[in-house]
Design a protein around this nucleic acid. Structure first.
Lengths: 133, 133
DNA sequence: TCATAACTGCAACTGTTTAACATAAAAATC
DNA sequence: GATTTTTATGTTAAACAGTTGCAGTTATGA
């Protein structure tokens, strides 16, 4: 169940958290804080904000910076540790404004200059998705 | 000269534009609108904003979304067209908060799902830079 | 010269993110 | 079970990035 998913990541399964989790699970695209706020009208924005922070911290979800000004969130895969080698590419469609996880497209590993240490990576294509072209 | 750089990209070389260009040329890291605003105290934020938009449109500079909430800008290479194959990786240091162009590290070409068409790509590592580790 | 276009400055406004503080609920301790 | 402590939520509002409208100024071109 969904509650189990939260407990697996050491997150106490409160009602709101379950709702947020389900909202993300039901979505085929990544959602911003305001997107979630519109779906869950009852819940307070600050609570949702903190819920997402908690989820991200516990690596239940990952955040995507798609250049729209609003960070989007999507569910991580089962054993994701959000390390560069775990992470996948995202695609932002400039027509429908949706951001998709390309879950099968892992981000290629590249070298970074000596002395630099990469903890995570964000890779987003911008263009037109299949439905919009 | 710097004015020539603007004219090469079909940008009329006004005083402010020359100042913004020089600010970016003098910087070893990518700069946000507010960064530039602090350096050029005289200039108005809206003017700087539109200047950066113009520069980006004319492909004199490129923008980087480094996850900090503020878009950063840096000078493009000479004949850059800002196509995915032109673009390079960026690195954001979470300690010093600076964002570096890894100009020699081109972004690896990957496939996108059929029907999708990528116009540009943003790839940013987050971690610790050489000076901070 | 005069009309037009381009650029700049000022002000205001939107939207996202975040903090401060108070309250409520849950968990732990006695 | 009552009390303390922790954790989660709600309310409010501030901070900040990005953006637009409008007026004034400067440059351009007929």
């Amino acid at each position: 169940m969904d509650e189990q998913k939260l407990e697996n990541r050491n997150i106490k399964p409160t009602p709101i958290r379950i709702l947020v989790l389900r909202t993300l699970l039901n979505s085929s695209v990544a959602l911003s804080l305001s997107d979630i706020e519109m779906v869950l009208e009852r819940a307070d924005k600050a609570t949702l904000y903190r819920t997402l922070k908690t989820f991200e911290e516990k690596k239940l979800i990952h955040s995507i910076d798609d250049g729209t000004g609003a960070v989007k969130y999507a569910i991580c895969e089962e054993n994701c540790e959000c390390k560069p080698q775990d992470q996948h590419i995202h695609f932002h469609c400039v027509k429908c404004k949706e951001t998709y996880c390309l879950s099968h497209a892992k981000i290629p590993q590249t070298k970074v200059p000596s002395g630099f240490k990469a903890d995570s990576v964000n890779m987003v294509y911008r263009g037109t998705c299949a439905s919009c072209s």
